[in-house]
Design a protein around this nucleic acid. Structure first.
Lengths: 189, 189
DNA sequence: ACTTTTAACTAACAAGTGTTAGTTGTTTTC
DNA sequence: GAAAACAACTAACACTTGTTAGTTAAAAGT
C-alpha cells in the first residue's frame, strides 16, 4: 500500500505479527525474520521495540482524535454526528486492521507515551459522550442511559478490526450504512 | 469469592495479572510473587503455564455454550431469546471479568485445546446467527443485514468485561435491561 | 506412632529476550 | 572519484523465560 520508507515497512510487518499473537509474544527476531533480515538490522531504522508499538498506536489514536474534532465542530444534528463517527471508524479501520488490533489490545505496553495515549482516548470518549448527551437534550435520542449507549456503540466500532477482514464483500459505504441502521435505529420491527 | 483449592487460587491470581498485561507478558515468577511463593512451587498444583490459560478459557467458553443451549431450546420468541443472551453475558461477565479478558485477548495462545475452543466459539456464533435469522423470518426483526446485527450485538457483549468494573453502580439486572433497550430498540427517538 | 500427602523450598538448565558494538559492502551526494 | 549515508551483517552482552530435580517441613490419614 504505502510502505515507502524501510521504517514504515518494519512497522507494517510488525503490526501484522502483533495482530496475530499480541505485542509481547512477538520477538524482534520474529519481526526480522518476516522481513528476511537479522534482528540487529532493525535498529538501523527504529530505536526500540517500544518505538514500533508507539508509532503504530499513537498515529492511529491521533487520526481518531483529529476526525472527532472535525465532526464535533460541524453544524449538523447530533444523530448525524453519530453517523459521521461510524463512518470515521469504518474508514480508519478498513485501512488499518492490524494497527487497530494493537491499539485495542496492547496499549498498556506503551511506556513513556502511555499517559499521552490515555489523554487522547479519554478526550475522544468525552466528546462522544457529549454528543450523545446533547442528542438526548435536543430530543433526537431517547432518554436512556447515555453510558450504556456510549459503551455499546463504541464497543462495536472498536471491534470492527476483527470483522472487516472476514467480510470483504461488504464495502465501506454499505458497512457504515448497515451499522448506522443497527446502532441508531435498533433491530426490532 | 470461591478460591477453595490452591489450584483455583493460582488460576484466579493469574487471571487478574493476565487481564492487566496479557498472557504473554506475565511470567510464572510474576504469578508466584503475587501469591507470595516461588515460581517452582506453582508446579505442585498446575502442570504448565498453558494449563492455567486453558483452564481459564475453556471453563468460561463451556459456560457460554451451556447457557446458549438452554436458550436455544426454550419456547420463547426470538427477540426474547436475544434478551436471554444479553442476560447470560451480563451474568457470566459480572462474575468473571478477569477471565473474560483472557478469553477475548489470549485465546490464540491455547495450543492443544485451541481447536476445541474454536469449535465452541463457532458453534455459539452459529446459534446466535440462527436466532437472528429466524427472528427476521418471523417478522420480529427488521430485514437488515443479519451479519452486521450479529457482529454488533456480540461485540458489545464481548466487551462488557471492560466496562462492568468501571460502572459498579449499575447492577446486573439494570444493565441487562439497558443493554436490551439499546441493542434491540436502538437509541433514536 | 508411622506413613503418606501436601506444598513449600533451593539450585539449576537450556533457550530465548532486547539491545549494543563494531564491521562491511553498496548506494547516493557532492 | 572521494565522502557520506544507508542498510545489512556477525558476535556478544546481561537478563528473563518456563520448567525440572531433588529436598524439607508440616499436615492428614491410617
Amino acid at each position: 500500500m504505502k510502505p515507502k520508507t524501510r521504517k514504515q515497512q518494519i512497522i507494517n510487518t510488525a503490526a501484522t505479527l502483533f495482530k496475530k499473537k499480541g505485542y509481547s509474544a512477538v520477538s524482534m527476531r520474529d519481526i526480522a525474520k518476516a522481513l528476511g533480515i537479522k534482528a540487529s538490522s532493525l535498529y538501523n531504522h527504529i530505536s526500540s521495540k517500544q518505538d514500533i508499538l508507539t508509532e503504530i498506536i499513537i498515529s492511529l489514536a491521533e487520526a481518531f482524535t483529529n476526525g472527532m474534532s472535525v465532526i464535533k465542530t460541524s453544524e449538523i444534528t447530533n444523530v448525524e454526528k453519530l453517523n459521521r463517527i461510524i463512518e470515521l471508524h469504518v474508514e480508519i479501520t478498513t485501512k488499518n486492521t492490524y494497527e487497530m488490533a494493537s491499539m485495542n489490545n496492547d496499549w498498556m505496553h506503551l511506556e513513556e507515551r502511555l499517559e499521552y495515549y490515555l489523554e487522547l482516548r479519554d478526550g475522544y470518549e468525552e466528546n462522544f459522550r457529549s454528543i450523545i448527551n446533547e442528542g438526548i437534550n435536543d430530543n433526537e435520542i431517547i432518554k436512556g442511559n447515555p453510558e450504556v449507549m456510549l459503551f455499546s456503540i463504541l464497543s462495536t466500532l472498536r471491534s470492527l478490526y476483527l470483522w472487516i477482514p472476514k467480510k470483504e464483500d461488504l464495502n465501506a459505504e454499505d458497512l457504515a450504512a448497515n451499522l448506522s441502521q443497527v446502532l441508531i435505529h435498533g433491530i426490532k420491527k
